[in-house]
Amino acid sequence: MTILNKKLTLNNGVEIPQIALGTWQVSTADAVHSTAFALKNGYRHIDGAHGYGNSKGIRAGIAASKVKREEIFITTKVRGESKTYTAVMSDFYDELKDLGTDSIDLVLVHCPTPWRFFSRDDKRPNFYLENLEVWRALSELYENGLIRAIGVSNFNVADLENLLANTDIKPVVNQILFHIGYTQSDIVEYCQANNILIEAYSSLGTGSLLGNADIQAIADKYDKTIPQICYRYPVQKGHIILPKSVHEKYILANTQLDFEISEEDMIALDQLSI
């Protein structure tokens, strides 16, 4: 079994492929080719968002791939700015139309605040009441069978506590910034204690890790590239990864992760300060 066949089980029993093609900052035109190429080469999970504005390209890529819809796990997100029941419903039905599907596998709250207020500082404004309305809308869609699972993105511990204390449906995932040198251990530990999977985005540190000499030394040891070490690291911790590329070479390389980083080297990577 390769990484492309590996699935994890969400807390509601739904299986999710551990690796997804990321589509952040991908144009609609590029989304067509990258989605089609990825699916033709074994990917079965596509991660998108209403805010990315490229869902029509993902739809066309899925069609071009000839892979059956029921074999593909589609994730999307409602906008961070959408903090009312009505706005969430609008985002969802826009995505349903643009993706050309009858249901979506996983829908996330893209941000706990409107983006202009977002910070990883716990002192930022909270939108606890608004997020309960957002969750009410997603829960209704989930209970009506239009979504197979619902989750969050960029939520800190307090944001998660708000949902768990005041709603009946637990998030299945929290998609967060997570990479070597920045692992947000407090959020990860809380999610793991509550059976919420981590989806790690920006595993390359938005490119900042590509020239790191310490990671390069470990990559050389395994005859791998820095990106492959950076993607293998969260996979080995049991997280879902979202490697993004529009280049065929890298779309393939990002899945060549069927190797094991030693415990000693994982500890070394844990201890890097970047």
Rank of each mutant, 00 (worst) to 15 (best):
G80H: 03
E199I: 08
E248M: 07
I229M: 07
D105F: 05
L210K: 07
R120T: 15
I16C: 11
N126L: 11
A36P: 00
K249E: 15
K123S: 12
L129W: 00
P114M: 09
G42W: 10
D102M: 01
V134Q: 00
I274K: 05
A29V: 15
H179G: 04
I187S: 07
L163W: 02
K66F: 05
K56A: 09
L242F: 10
T76Y: 07
V152T: 13
A268F: 06
F37V: 05
K97N: 15
I274F: 15
Q216M: 11
V32N: 04
P17L: 09
Q216R: 14
G80M: 06
G53A: 06
G211Q: 10
A149K: 02
P125R: 10
S139T: 15
Q236C: 09
T206S: 14
T35G: 03
L39V: 02
K6W: 04
E199Y: 02
G207R: 07
H45Y: 11
R120E: 15
K66C: 09
D270W: 02
F127I: 08
G48D: 13
L163D: 05
R79Q: 14
A253R: 09
A165T: 03
V246G: 02
S153G: 08
T84H: 10
P112Q: 04
A149H: 03
A200R: 06
H33M: 07
P112W: 01
A20P: 00
N5A: 12
Y190L: 08
S34N: 08
T101P: 08
H33S: 14
E95T: 07
T84W: 07
L272M: 13
R116M: 12
I187G: 06
N41W: 11
N212L: 13
Y142K: 12
P171Q: 05
D102W: 00
D47P: 01
L108K: 04
A193C: 04
D121H: 08
N144D: 14
S185K: 11
L10W: 07
R136W: 02
T167G: 03
K77S: 08
V134W: 00
T84N: 05
K7D: 11
L164V: 01
F73K: 01
L129E: 15
E248L: 09
I74C: 03
L132H: 04
I187R: 07
I176K: 01
P227K: 12
H247L: 12
T75W: 00
S139I: 06
T225S: 15
F73I: 01
G205N: 05
E81G: 13
I196L: 10
A49T: 02
A31V: 03
I267H: 13
K249A: 13
L132Y: 02
I104L: 05
M1V: 15
L177Q: 13
L163R: 00
I198K: 06
G22R: 06
P234R: 07
H179Y: 13
G22W: 03
D168R: 14
